[in-house]
Amino acid sequence: MYIKEPYFTKVFKPFIFVLALVPVFILAWSFYSKNLGANPLEAMTHQTGDWALRFLLISLLVSPLKRLLGWNQLTRCRRILGLYAFFYASLHFITYLWLDQFFVWEDILHDIVNRPFITVGMLAYLLLIPLAITSAKFMIRLLKKKWIQLHKLAYVLPILGIVHYWWLVKSNIYEPVLYAVILLIIFIARFICTLKKNTIGQTCE
């Protein structure tokens, strides 16, 4: 598949950019119009967390999708999708710090240390920060091999995100399992690719 230039750069990429903002607008609108149910702050924590995890997975789906469709341009969307994962994770974290805890640092620290699901979430967010910082193009040139190694973390983050989710649900693990299955498919696709790579020399990143 191929979209002609400049349409890819001028239309498709901005479209992705705007599409990825839809969830935050829906969330803001629902909050404003009091449509988030009886516990709106909880709904905000949940929705921003959901989208952080989804964008982590979506950004990893770019490569297998590219190979599946033979659509090399798609790689150029990966950076922005990864940044959106960071964007939603940041909203999620801020929602937690501000609207959930109202910056009561003592309780926040207690949470991070004593609640395994929060410990894992915190770790995921901390690891996401260097990826966001080094996402700029000149960083790739600057860090070279190190950049590739660093950005392998992108495969670790959704694991942490899923564990975080798994540990916080009370009894219905349907959704974390669903995300885990998607991640498994991504890993399998990558594994198959690395097997092939040895024979035809294609890259899998």
Partner: peptide, 14 residues
């Protein structure tokens, strides 16, 4: 292990 029990959010209050 999941929720702090030292405080609570009264539904309708932030």
């Amino acid at each position: 292990p999941r929720w702090s029990q030292s405080r609570e959010r009264r539904i309708g209050k932030y």
